[in-house]
């Protein structure tokens, strides 16, 4: 029974020779992350938003773990940090709704967040899309790492 983890160890030794793959992925990963941020913050004007950005951001981590090995990838984002972001995004979303309530509006009404209702809507949508992106990215990274890191290497 071969697991991804065992494969990744053997592959890491092979990878030492596969310079092209390593260099290309190192070039690609920052671009993927930059594109994810663009999709995240440009979602108001073009296609995109938190859901897509979260998945694209996660795919950068998945590519890193596939090329350099899952245990190396785990060091970039520890399990504790992943769980923190998993909850933080959802709490940010729900928190924006509660702040709106405290400011005298209804739950998840962003118009009251700032003086100008349209600016308030902008701020609210920016924050909740950020919450969506963080939770989706953390969820996808968590799920992938759990699947890829099943076996204890004895």
């Amino acid at each position: 029974m071969k697991s991804l983890r065992v494969m990744s160890k053997r592959r890491r030794r092979e990878m030492q020779h596969k310079e092209v793959l390593r260099v290309c992925s190192k070039l690609l990963i920052p671009l993927i992350m930059l594109f994810a941020l663009y999709v995240q913050f440009h979602g108001d004007f073009g296609p995109g938003g938190g859901f897509q950005a979260g998945v694209i951001f996660a795919s950068a981590f998945i590519l890193y773990a596939l090329i350099f090995g899952v245990d190396v990838g785990m060091k970039v984002l520890s399990p504790g940090a992943r769980r923190f972001f998993l909850a933080a995004g959802l709490l940010l979303y729900a928190g924006v709704g509660i702040v709106g309530m405290l400011l005298g509006g209804r739950y998840l009404n962003y118009s009251v967040l700032l003086q100008d209702p349209i600016a308030g809507q902008h701020l609210g949508i920016l924050l909740i899309e950020l919450g969506v992106g963080v939770t989706v990215a953390a969820a996808m990274i968590t799920i992938f790492y759990v699947f890829a890191n099943q076996d204890d290497s004895e």
Partner: peptide
């Protein structure tokens, strides 16, 4: 549907975890 797709992959992951 946009939200359903993301929820769909999350639940697929749960199903695959059950398979494992």
């Amino acid at each position: 549907i946009l939200t359903a797709i993301v929820v769909g992959v999350a639940t697929t992951a749960l199903a695959l975890a059950l398979v494992v």
